[in-house]
Simulated assay, not measured.
Amino acid sequence: MPRSASLTATRRATNVTLPDALLHDARQLGINLSQACERGLAEAVTEMRRQRWLEHNRDAIRAWNEHVAVRGLPLAAYRQF
């Protein structure tokens, strides 16, 4: 989630279960648990969306790669290196 959206998003309290040692270390280091959990969850959501997009588009990606392997890149004659 973009940083600006996370600052204005509606918040809801929730419970999380964390290992004691990790929680202890985070508190000793002054880590804001809500911010750290939000950041980690946002990364997990982004990664899952990426994986699902790749899976959903797997056939199209494969077809395009085969097309390029056989015919080359479109407009390749106009590329300047």
Rank of each mutant, 00 (worst) to 15 (best):
9 A>C: 04
12 R>G: 00
45 V>D: 06
12 R>V: 02
4 S>T: 09
5 A>K: 06
45 V>S: 09
79 R>H: 14
66 E>F: 01
43 E>F: 06
36 A>Q: 11
79 R>C: 12
73 L>I: 06
19 P>S: 05
33 L>M: 12
78 Y>T: 12
4 S>I: 08
67 H>M: 10
30 G>K: 02
5 A>F: 03
4 S>E: 10
22 L>H: 02
12 R>M: 01
44 A>M: 15
63 A>K: 08
35 Q>V: 11
8 T>K: 07
28 Q>H: 06
46 T>C: 14
3 R>D: 08
50 R>D: 11
50 R>S: 12
26 A>Y: 03
29 L>Y: 05
17 T>I: 00
78 Y>H: 13
26 A>G: 02
39 R>T: 13
16 V>L: 03
37 C>P: 01
31 I>F: 06
59 D>M: 15
23 L>R: 02
2 P>A: 12
51 Q>T: 13
60 A>Y: 08
28 Q>Y: 01
11 R>C: 00
74 P>A: 15
40 G>Y: 09
21 A>V: 03
78 Y>G: 12
73 L>G: 06
2 P>M: 05
47 E>L: 15
10 T>W: 00
38 E>W: 09
62 R>S: 08
79 R>K: 15
60 A>D: 07
17 T>M: 04
55 E>C: 12
23 L>H: 10
31 I>C: 08
38 E>S: 13
54 L>F: 12
66 E>L: 14
72 G>I: 07
53 W>G: 09
44 A>R: 13
8 T>S: 09
30 G>V: 08
47 E>V: 15
23 L>M: 03
72 G>H: 06
54 L>D: 09
39 R>S: 14
56 H>G: 09
18 L>M: 14
26 A>R: 02
72 G>D: 05
46 T>I: 15
28 Q>V: 05
23 L>E: 04
